[in-house]
Amino acid sequence: MTEFRRRHLLGAALAGAALPWDAARAQAAMTAAVYPGGWDEALRAVLAPRLRERHNIGVAFEPLFAVDQIAKARAARGNPPFDVFVLDPGPRVSGIEFGLFEAFDPAKLTNRALLPDGYADAHGAAVAAQVVGIAYNPTKVAKPKGWADLFKPEYVPKLGLTGFGTTFGTISLIEMAKALGGSEANMDPLFAELRRIRPNVAAVGQPAAMPGMFQQGQIDVMYTNTYTVTLLRSRGVNIDFAVPETGAAAFVTTMHIAKGSRNLDSAYKYIDEMIATPVQAALAQDPYFFVPVNKDVTPGADVPMRSISEIGNFVTHDWARINPVRAQWIARFNREMAG
C-alpha cells in the first residue's frame, strides 16, 4: 500500500515522533515489523493508539517488506529484531520452514471468534485480505473479460507490466499463464506472450510505479488489488476493477510472533487488537481501504465480497509450490523484459 493524503501523513509523522516517549511511559513495550507506506501509516494512526489506551503497551514499528523481515530475522540468529511479523502467504511459508515463529495459541485471542475458521492457527493469525484482478480506465478501454484479454491488440499499448516481486504480481502472472495454456509448472506460454507484446506494451516497471502511471494516463490497464483501485478512485481517477472470468484471486496477510520474543503477552495483545472490530472497521475506511478479515466488518464497495467468509469463492495459490521457483521467475522476467 502506498500514498495517503497530506493530513494523514502529517498525523502519522506526529504519531511517529511521539512514539519513543509513549513507549517509555508504557508499562510494556514491543516492536512490530510493518510494511512501509500505507500499512505503517495506518497502524501508527489506528492500532498503536488503541494498544496504548486499552493495554498501556507502546509499540515501535520497523518498516520492512516481507522478504526483508524474513532475511533480517534469519540473520539475527535467535535474537529477534522485532516481536511480530506481518507477512503475505509466500514469506509466511518461508518463516514456517525456517522456524522463525513462536508456537501460536489462538485461544489467547479474545477476538478469535470474529475470524473465519482456519484464520488463526499454530503459526499466527490473519489480519487483512487482498483481492487481485484487473484495473482499467473505463473511459479509455472496454472492460477486460479475463487475463488473456491483456495480450490482445486493443489492450497491449495501454498495459502496464510488473514482475513477480510482489504477491499480487506473482499470482496475476500465474493466472495469465493458466489462461494461455500454461501452469505453475509451465510458465513458458506466459513468457512467450510477454516477449511478443514487449515492443508494444505501454510500460514495464516496478510495482510501486504502476498506480502513478495509471493516474497520469501513461497506462490504462494494470493488474493490482482492490486497495489500489479504491485509493485512486478516491483521488478522482477514472478506474474500475474487473473480476476475471476465471475469478479474482485472493490471499490473506498474517501476523506471527517471532521466535524468542521476550514480549509474548504484548505481542498477543497487539495481534488481538489488530483483528478487533473497531480497528478493522477503521482500517476498512478512507484513507486506508484495508480488506477486513473480521466477520463483523463489511469490506468497502470496491471489494467484490460482502464478508471475508466469501473468500472461499476466490482463486487461491499453493505457496509451498511457488516459493521454490519464484526466484527463477523473477530473474527470468527481469532478463527477458528488460530494455
Rank of each mutant, 00 (worst) to 15 (best):
K295T: 15
F85W: 03
G300D: 13
N323Y: 05
Y155P: 10
V243P: 08
L64N: 02
D149T: 09
A33K: 00
Y155N: 12
D149K: 08
L47M: 09
A73S: 14
F151A: 07
K140L: 15
G58I: 02
L87V: 02
A135Q: 08
G169F: 00
L283G: 14
K295P: 12
V279P: 13
Y223L: 05
G99F: 09
S183H: 11
A18M: 13
M337L: 13
L283W: 12
F61M: 12
D83P: 00
A26L: 03
T316Q: 10
L232V: 12
A23T: 10
L51F: 04
A120C: 10
A75F: 01
A45V: 08
D83C: 01
V46W: 06
A249I: 02
A125C: 11
D318H: 04
A282E: 15
G205P: 04
T224M: 10
P89C: 00
A209Q: 06
T139D: 15
Q215M: 12
A276L: 08
D88F: 03
Y288Q: 06
W329K: 01
S183R: 12
R198A: 03
V229Q: 03
T162W: 14
R332M: 01
F85G: 05
L47W: 06
T316I: 00
P106W: 05
T170H: 01
A17V: 14
A17M: 14
G182H: 10
Y136W: 11
Q216M: 10
H256N: 05
D22R: 15
F151W: 07
N111G: 07
V229N: 01
T253L: 09
I322T: 01
T246W: 04
P207L: 01
I174N: 02
T254Y: 04
V141K: 12
I322W: 00
R44C: 06
N294E: 06
D296N: 15
D265R: 09
T2M: 07
E336D: 10
F214S: 02
P89F: 02
K269M: 12
L180D: 13
A23D: 08
F289I: 09
G165H: 00
Y288F: 14
Y119A: 09
P106F: 04
Y268Q: 03
P287D: 10
A122V: 13
R233I: 07
G78R: 02
N334R: 00
P63Y: 03
D40S: 09
Q215R: 14
Y227Q: 14
I174A: 01
K143N: 13
P292S: 08
N334F: 00
V141C: 12
A107C: 00
Q206I: 08
R233D: 11
G205S: 10
T167H: 01
T2H: 11
G312N: 14
A76P: 04
P287V: 09
A203L: 05
L283Y: 13
F168W: 13
R7E: 15
P199T: 05
A120F: 05
A248W: 06
R235P: 03
V291C: 06
P106G: 08
I271T: 04
A284T: 15
V127C: 12
R44F: 05
F289L: 11
V303M: 03
A28I: 03
G78T: 02
G124M: 01
G181Y: 03
